[in-house]
């Protein structure tokens, strides 16, 4: 066989292998990115639920709260102004922090008014918010697990070559210190 053809065949095989490798790497990164996005929308769903329940709790508590009124009203304002899917991870973290503050304010009010504790409607909201908290924590852990996997792909050799070629960049973790390693424990 003509040596030129042999060289062409070898080059063709090498190119084909590279193409398959690039396609595989690209698909893997793309699917990692999709998983991260899906997990982020999971956080949005959990945050929306938390907002809804928290707003209802604020409605019930509002009449009792004097000193904490401002903190509670902030949450309601936040609920009306924020468009969750458009918010960045950092903004979402800030939203969580503000919701935590509101939750603490509600706790303070509940401690001061035992009849509020006995309120059936409020009890139901307590149950709901606890479950919502668990879902939010799960969504956060799922997101971080997916980000961790995706970031490794973006940063480690050889997949970082493909990541660089197609402009895949690392994603930010959803850090919330107090929820990081412990279960959600709502105290009323």
């Amino acid at each position: 066989m003509n040596p030129g053809i042999v060289v062409l065949i070898i080059v063709g095989i090498i190119l084909f292998i590279i193409l398959v490798w690039v396609a595989g790497g690209y698909n893997s990164l793309q699917s990692g990115k999709i998983k991260v996005n899906e997990a982020e929308s999971g956080i949005d769903v959990a945050l929306t639920k938390r907002f809804d329940v928290l707003t209802k709790m604020v409605e019930v508590v509002k009449g009792y709260a004097k000193h904490e009124k401002e903190t509670l009203e902030k949450v309601v304002e936040l609920r009306n102004s924020v468009k969750l899917p458009n918010a960045s991870i950092q903004e979402k973290q800030q939203i969580v922090t503000q919701m935590d503050q509101a939750m603490r304010a509600i706790n303070v009010v509940v401690e001061q008014y035992p009849d509020l504790k006995a309120n059936e409607n409020f009890k139901h909201l307590q149950v709901t918010i606890s479950d919502v908290e668990e879902h939010l924590q799960a969504a956060r852990r799922v997101y971080n697990a997916n980000v961790s996997y995706y970031n490794q792909k973006v940063q480690l050799f050889p997949s970082n070559i493909i990541a660089g070629m197609f402009h895949f960049t690392t994603r930010e973790f959803f850090e919330a210190e107090e929820f990081k390693r412990q279960d959600v424990e709502m105290k009323f």
Binding site: E134, A138, V142, D183
Partner: peptide, 13 residues
């Protein structure tokens, strides 16, 4: 479902 697994299997569990 990945979310259910993380929801049920909490760090303390």
């Amino acid at each position: 479902n990945q979310h259910d697994a993380f929801y049920v299997l909490t760090p303390s569990l």
